[in-house]
């Protein structure tokens, strides 16, 4: 079945979901991101790696306009989702973030029940007309996040009462519930133990049959395990972007090689 695995990892026939051209970000005087061009593929896991302060999280936050909320941030260049400019003034950032969901480093469930955590997004975006429809969305989302079996008997229990790994999967279910097309994950496993990490990684692999997943990670092994494409950022520039296997065996840029082999901090 090795051949199947290779086919599964082959994303060369995927279309671009998000295209970024000449993206620059300034935080006040600081030039945080310099002229990034990249095409994020549909139904593919893309990992962003690089040392702290390299611009990978900054770029991730450009993809659903999270940087809008940072007063000093100034984003220029062009980012399209399915060909549509996401910085177009007619685009509602709240609607955009329903399509381009986000999961953060630390699990941050709302101080509400498990059910309400997942139902919140669909409610405010009017995705369900009846209680039955909402129940359906909650169940499907929890199933997609591989959490349903663990919580189906206690949906009214507080989300904050779950374990760390379960909370993170709850946050993934919450992001999945608004039927996103892209899921952005900013170090989603850094607060989890190895078992919970493996579960979330397995989940990411399943999610890519439905969405594009972009994951920022400090763990190169995690990038190697979960992604099909890897982008290496350094000092605000996208240094190298390629097929994950190629990046980890024969990187083309000496800076990529130095970083992934543990020669620069």
């Amino acid at each position: 079945m090795n051949d199947m695995r290779l086919v599964e990892r082959d994303v060369s026939n995927r279309q671009a979901k998000i295209e970024a051209r000449g993206v620059q970000v300034h935080y006040g005087e600081k030039h945080a991101l310099k002229d990034v061009d990249v095409a994020i593929l549909d139904r593919t896991v893309t990992a962003f790696i690089g040392p702290s302060g390299c611009g990978k999280s900054t770029f991730l936050r450009c993809l659903n306009r999270m940087n809008d909320t940072v007063a000093s941030a100034k984003v220029s260049g062009n980012i399209t989702l399915d060909g549509q400019d996401i910085y177009d003034p007619r685009i509602d950032p709240v609607q955009l973030r329903a399509k381009v969901g986000m999961v953060f480093q630390k699990p941050n469930p709302f101080p509400k029940s498990i059910y309400d955590n997942v139902a919140y997004g669909p409610k405010i975006h009017g995705l369900a007309r009846t209680k039955a429809e909402l129940d359906e969305i909650v169940e499907t989302s929890l199933k997609k996040a591989a959490l349903w079996n663990e919580v189906k008997d206690r949906l009214s229990a507080p989300g904050t009462g779950l374990s760390g790994g379960q909370q993170q999967r709850l946050c993934i279910a919450r992001a999945v519930a608004t039927a996103p097309e892209v899921l952005l994950m900013d170090e989603p496993c850094s607060a989890l133990d190895p078992i919970a990490t493996a579960q979330v990684e397995e989940l990411i692999d399943e999610l890519r049959t439905h969405f594009s997943v972009v994951i920022v990670t400090h763990s190169m092994q995690q990038a190697a395990r979960v992604s099909q494409k890897t982008a290496f950022f350094h000092l605000g520039s996208l240094v190298e972007y390629g097929e994950t296997g190629q990046i980890f065996t024969t990187p083309q840029d000496p800076r990529t090689e130095a970083y992934i082999t543990g020669r620069i901090g």
């Binding site: 990187p251 090689e257 082999t261």
Partner: peptide
């Protein structure tokens, strides 16, 4: 060590 790139080769 899970070597990569030149180290792996």
């Amino acid at each position: 060590r899970a070597p990569t790139a030149g180290d792996l080769r």
